[in-house]
């Protein structure tokens, strides 16, 4: 589904990703771990099409398409989803109408009929139970005045409604208490299927107690320096990152 080969990315002349390789297949959950400044968020941003990153070399192919050549909205319509580390507040844009608009853009792209207000509300109510979100948050402007946990739940709600093929979760666990973490992880686990894939970017191992990854990768200085199964995450929890960095 996603194939990243020798990806090199810089920001204002400073190299951040330095020859990154990653293969993600449908049905898999990949965890990308690493210390601060290793390039985790840059990877998430580049994959979702944020401005301000220069691709200096390598490639990223998504469902056979040159991903880096697609506009951010086209990536989303093709089934990619980024759960933001810091979800943006958008005053004046209603949470429900925003999400309805987003879903219908994606449906249009797929050649499906747009959902009307009634069908959409039924869908969103169902998915809200998944993330245990209060209904009044739907009536508010996008993320405005939401607590940290509510913002992250709103990301997972969006993910549940848009039903992506490839979801990238950028430090979704940061700033979450254990209850919120459980709910967010529960959402991911319920959405998981053989047809979709998740890339879970995290600094800490604790999210991986709830979302069990198939593959764990350690990112350091813009490269994956070690890959393994879920046991690698436990090892990192016990030993920290230093032993790996010394080897690298």
């Amino acid at each position: 589904m996603l194939s990243i080969k020798d990806l090199q990315v810089s920001v204002e002349g400073k190299t951040i990703l330095n020859g990154l390789n990653l293969e993600v297949k449908a049905g898999e959950i990949h965890a990308i771990m690493g210390p601060n400044g290793s390039g985790k968020s840059t990877l998430a941003h580049v994959l979702s099409g944020k401005d301000g990153y220069d691709v200096d070399g390598g490639s990223a192919t998504y469902k056979g398409m040159d991903l880096l050549d697609l506009a951010p909205e086209v990536r989303a319509r093709e089934g990619m989803f980024l759960a933001f580390q810091y979800p943006i507040e958008i005053p004046g844009v209603n949470n429900t109408s925003f999400l309805k608009k987003a879903l219908n853009e994606i449906r249009k792209h797929r050649g499906e009929d747009e959902l009307d207000a009634i069908d959409f509300l039924a869908l969103i109510k169902k998915q809200m139970e998944l993330v245990e979100m209060k209904e009044d948050l739907l009536k508010r402007p996008v993320n405005q005045g939401f607590s940290g946990g509510e913002k992250k739940r709103n990301e997972i709600l969006q993910m549940a409604v848009l039903n992506p093929e490839l979801a990238i979760l950028d430090e979704t666990d940061s700033g979450l208490d254990i209850d919120a973490l459980r709910i967010v992880a529960g959402g991911v686990n319920k959405l998981r299927s053989k047809d979709n894939a998740f890339v879970v970017i995290t600094h800490y191992q604790r999210l991986l107690d709830y979302i069990i990854p198939d593959h764990v990768h350690v990112l350091s200085e813009g490269k994956i320096i070690k890959s393994g199964g879920k046991e690698l995450a436990f090892e990192l929890e016990e030993r920290g990152y230093d032993w790996l960095l010394e080897h690298a």
């Binding site: 909205e73 989303a76 319509r77 933001f84 979800p87 005053p91 004046g92 879903l103 969006q158």
Partner: peptide, 27 residues
């Protein structure tokens, strides 16, 4: 950042811009 957020959900850039301006006025 708001434009990118909307785009990352599948909404085209021009339309995203319109939504933000509309919201600015709607307040």
């Amino acid at each position: 950042d708001a434009l990118f957020y909307l785009q990352s959900r599948g909404i085209g850039r021009e339309e995203a811009a319109q939504m933000l301006i509309h919201a600015f006025a709607a307040e």
